[in-house]
């Protein structure tokens, strides 16, 4: 519908409130995520950024006592509507976690996991998507000769990119990244960041990060959260050079957080 416009929203969050029992973790959040852009969520620990990330593919449903009001529209459809098929949603909005978490299986079996649970049985189809996914995560050349080796023996940055490959195999539209580099050293981190730039051509990425430099390096838009509130949301360049709110400025300049 909005193909002509270069920038359009893929996710629209409207008045989202989230409670853990009595505690309100997100307070009336409204923001939209731009298609094929990288949006960074920053803020001090406990500000709600990870909680928000996890409400975009309903991973919070797994936690007991979570109550959500408001809307999250994905391509115009409310993901909290009872008609939403949750397994489909999670394939469309995939997730990369804080610690690289390949299954204790071979590299191959890790990458095709999502395809197998989706019922793909054809060996040639699995092989094809597996190769494509590893190529997309820049792992094919290193791993093509040891596809049946255990994934847990890989170095951490390859494990994390393997997790990305495993996600790409299910053809998501949006990739949520929850501090994807916090377990990695600086060199590994830069490899993952380069990969994110490449992935941006085809995917929308939302990343939670504690690392301010990372946010400024990789993202197009940045949202600053503080105790459950969205304080400021703008172009990354603007946030880091001319923040509109005092709290944002204090945070990015390291005065608190």
């Amino acid at each position: 519908m909005e193909e002509s416009k270069k920038v359009h929203d893929i996710i629209d969050i409207k008045n989202l409130d989230l409670y853990y029992g009595q505690f309100q973790a997100l307070k009336s959040i409204s923001m939209s995520i731009q298609h094929k852009m990288i949006t960074a969520l920053i803020g001090p620990s406990g500000c709600g950024k990870s909680t928000l990330l996890r409400s975009l593919n309903r991973m919070n449903d797994l936690i007991r006592g979570v109550r959500i009001t408001g809307q999250v529209l994905l391509d115009g459809k409310d993901i909290y509507n009872s008609g939403m098929e949750i397994t489909e949603l999670r394939k469309t909005v995939g997730m990369v976690f804080q610690r690289p978490n390949p299954f204790p299986l071979s590299i191959y079996d890790n990458v095709v996991y999502g395809l197998r649970v989706a019922g793909v049985k054809s060996k040639s189809q699995l092989d094809e998507i597996m190769e494509w996914s590893l190529r997309s995560a820049w792992l094919w050349d290193q791993l093509k000769d040891k596809l049946h080796h255990p994934a847990l023996q890989l170095p951490l940055d390859q494990q994390q990119r393997l997790c990305i490959a495993r996600l790409l195999a299910v053809k998501p539209e949006v990739i949520l990244m929850d501090e994807p580099c916090s377990a990695l050293d600086p060199i590994s981190t830069s490899k993952v960041e380069d990969l994110m730039h490449e992935l941006k051509k085809d995917y929308t990425i939302v990343i939670v990060t504690h690392n301010m430099q990372q946010a400024s390096r990789v993202s197009d838009y940045t949202a600053f959260y503080y105790i459950g509130n969205l304080i400021e949301y703008a172009d990354t360049k603007k946030i880091f050079t001319a923040p509109g709110v005092k709290q944002t400025e204090d945070y990015i300049s390291g005065r608190f957080g």
Binding site: T87, R90, Y113, G114, V117, L167
Partner: peptide
């Protein structure tokens, strides 16, 4: 984490139990 990853790749709870 294994369960979370499995769910995040679109597996149902039973698939997660059986495969992971």
């Amino acid at each position: 984490a294994y369960r979370e990853v499995s769910f995040s790749l679109g597996a149902s709870r039973w698939q997660t139990v059986r495969k992971v």
